[in-house]
Amino acid sequence: MSIQHFRVALIPFFAAFCLPVFAHPETLVKVKDAEDQLGARVGYIELDLNSGKILESFRPEERFPMMSTFKVLLCGAVLSRVDAGQEQLGRRIHYSQNDLVKYSPVTEKHLTDGMTVRELCSAAITMSDNTAANLLLTTIGGPKELTAFLHNMGDHVTRLDRWEPELNEAIPNDERDTTMPAAMATTLRKLLTGELLTLASRQQLIDWMEADKVAGPLLRSALPAGWFIADKSGASERGSRGIIAALGPDGKPSRIVVIYTTGSQATMDERNRQIAEIGASLIKHW
């Protein structure tokens, strides 16, 4: 058993032996400061991975655009179909130039040979490839079927209504393609630790998130040596930015963190910096 498999397999085991986890309101002070700095709403939640207890939250039940963070949920739905014998990670999917949409750094290189379902999930999560996400959405029946999958998990909040890139429109008060921090954190925890997916599929999902290559300026920039993080970021119109993550010290995840912001006029660099500073406060007061 690899170190990674050891880590995921023991998450339920550690729940019975973990020390009490204490919240630190200092992080919420930073979240509120980020709102002031960005001139935008910020949603935040910090969840204990083992118990599911909410440690801190700010606007946990307000809607925010999901942006590309939905791609983790999408690959969770794909893995659920794999577990049920309805899909194979090794199945190759062929597509054409007409299928390519904006920001497809991986799929645009494989027009001649296509990509496997496994490769598409990797591209969608680690590189946020939009065509990969659309191709995967097609395999499960489209955005409405992803919403149905989430409903069956008990998440009646999170919804996907459109495809890439239209889902990134982020119109104020538009509930399409949105979630709430509390709903996203709970759903992510179920995917990573619950019985919905097999152990192998849970491991695969967290491996893809751990290999994320496009979230460096966010929480990863504040991470001390030896800490673990598996994450997925997102960005969209109207100053929207977000990240969902499982992270913790000693090389294993122990908390879920979800951060969303929307409605800012700030630059992408400034949005990144504010999220990184929230992460730094979280780690300092861990």
Rank of each mutant, 00 (worst) to 15 (best):
Ser2Ile: 15
Ile3Thr: 13
Ile3Arg: 10
His5Asp: 12
Arg7Pro: 15
Arg7Ala: 12
Val8His: 15
Val8Asp: 12
Ala9Trp: 14
Ala9Asp: 07
Leu10Thr: 14
Leu10Val: 14
Ile11Met: 14
Ile11Arg: 06
Pro12Gln: 11
Ala16Ser: 15
Phe17Gly: 11
Leu19Met: 15
Leu19Cys: 15
Pro20Ala: 07
Val21Thr: 11
Val21Glu: 00
His24Val: 08
His24Ser: 12
Leu28Met: 11
Lys30Thr: 09
Val31Leu: 12
Gln37His: 13
Gln37Pro: 05
Ala40Leu: 06
Arg41Asn: 08
Gly43Glu: 01
Gly43Cys: 02
Tyr44Asp: 01
Tyr44Ser: 01
Leu49Ile: 05
Gly52Ser: 05
Leu55Asn: 05
Leu55Ser: 04
Leu55His: 06
Glu56Arg: 06
Ser57Lys: 12
Arg59Thr: 10
Pro60Val: 08
Glu62Ala: 06
Pro65Gly: 05
Met66Ala: 04
Ser68Cys: 01
Thr69Ser: 03
Lys71Arg: 01
Val72Ser: 04
Leu73Ser: 05
Cys75Arg: 02
Ala77Val: 10
Ala77Glu: 07
Ala77Asp: 08
Val82Ala: 10
Gln86Pro: 04
Glu87Val: 07
Glu87Ile: 08
Glu87Phe: 06
Gln88Ser: 14
Leu89Asp: 04
Gly90Asn: 15
Gly90Glu: 13
Gly90Pro: 08
Arg91Pro: 00
Ile93Phe: 05
His94Asp: 09
Tyr95Cys: 01
Ser96Leu: 12
Ser96Ala: 14
Ser96Trp: 08
Ser96Phe: 12
Gln97Leu: 13
Asn98Cys: 11
Leu100Val: 12
Lys102Glu: 03
Tyr103Ile: 05
Tyr103Asn: 07
Thr107Ala: 11
Lys109Met: 15
Thr112Ala: 13
Asp113His: 15
Asp113Pro: 07
Val117Ile: 14
Arg118Glu: 14
Glu119Gly: 09
Cys121Tyr: 05
Ile125Leu: 13
Ile125Ala: 00
Ile125Val: 12
Ile125Gln: 00
Met127Lys: 08
Asp129Ile: 00
Asn130Arg: 00
Thr131Ser: 11
Thr131Arg: 00
Ala133Asp: 03
Ala133Pro: 10
Leu135Ala: 05
Leu136Met: 07
Thr138Leu: 12
Thr139Ala: 10
Ile140Asn: 00
Lys144Trp: 08
Lys144Gly: 13
Glu145Met: 13
Glu145Gln: 14
Asn152Cys: 11
Met153Ile: 14
Met153Asn: 09
Met153Arg: 06
Gly154Arg: 05
Asp155Gly: 02
Asp155Ile: 12
Thr158His: 00
Leu160Ile: 10
Leu160Gln: 04
Arg162Gly: 03
Glu164Ala: 05
Glu164Tyr: 00
Glu164Asn: 02
Glu169Arg: 07
Ala170Glu: 12
Ala170His: 14
Ile171Val: 13
Asn173Cys: 12
Asn173Asp: 13
Asn173Leu: 10
Asp174Val: 02
Glu175Cys: 10
Arg176Val: 05
Arg176Tyr: 07
Asp177Ala: 01
Thr178Arg: 01
Thr179Gly: 01
Thr179Arg: 01
Met180Lys: 13
Pro181Thr: 02
Ala183Leu: 04
Ala185Gly: 11
Thr187Ser: 12
Arg189Ser: 10
Arg189Gly: 08
Lys190Leu: 09
Leu191Val: 07
Thr193Gly: 10
Thr193Arg: 14
Leu196Pro: 13
Leu197Pro: 01
Leu197Ser: 02
Thr198Leu: 08
Ala200His: 15
Ser201Val: 05
Ser201Ala: 10
Gln203Ala: 11
Gln204Arg: 10
Ile206Phe: 15
Ile206Leu: 15
Asp207Ser: 14
Asp207Arg: 13
Trp208Phe: 05
Trp208Met: 03
Trp208Asp: 04
Met209Ile: 15
Glu210Ser: 10
Glu210Lys: 11
Ala211Gly: 12
Asp212Val: 04
Asp212His: 05
Lys213Val: 11
Lys213Ile: 09
Lys213Asn: 09
Val214Glu: 04
Val214Ala: 08
Val214Thr: 12
Ala215Glu: 05
Gly216Lys: 08
Leu218Asp: 00
Leu219Met: 06
Leu219His: 01
Ser221Lys: 15
Ser221Gln: 11
Ser221Ile: 09
Ala222Ile: 13
Pro224Ala: 04
Phe228Ile: 05
Phe228Thr: 04
Ile229Cys: 09
Ala230Gly: 08
Asp231Ile: 03
Lys232Ile: 00
Lys232Phe: 00
Ser233Tyr: 02
Ala235Asp: 01
Ser236Thr: 09
Glu237Met: 08
Glu237Gln: 08
Arg238Lys: 13
Arg238Ala: 13
Gly239Lys: 04
Gly239Met: 04
Ser240Val: 04
Gly242Trp: 00
Ile243Tyr: 06
Ile243Trp: 03
Ile244Met: 05
Ile244Leu: 06
Ile244Asn: 01
Ile244Phe: 01
Leu247Ala: 03
Gly248Arg: 02
Pro249Asp: 04
Pro249His: 05
Asp250Asn: 15
Gly251Val: 06
Gly251His: 10
Lys252Cys: 11
Lys252Asp: 07
Pro253Arg: 06
Pro253Ala: 14
Ser254Gln: 12
Ile256Asn: 00
Val258Gly: 03
Thr262Met: 10
Gln265Ile: 12
Gln265Gly: 14
Ala266Arg: 11
Ala266Gly: 09
Thr267Asp: 12
Thr267Glu: 10
Asp269Cys: 10
Arg273Ser: 09
Gln274Ser: 12
Ile275Phe: 10
Glu277Arg: 09
Ala280Lys: 15
Ala280Asp: 14
Ser281Ile: 12
Leu282Ile: 14
Leu282Gln: 03
Ile283Phe: 12
Ile283Arg: 04
Lys284Met: 09
Lys284Arg: 15
His285Cys: 07
His285Thr: 09
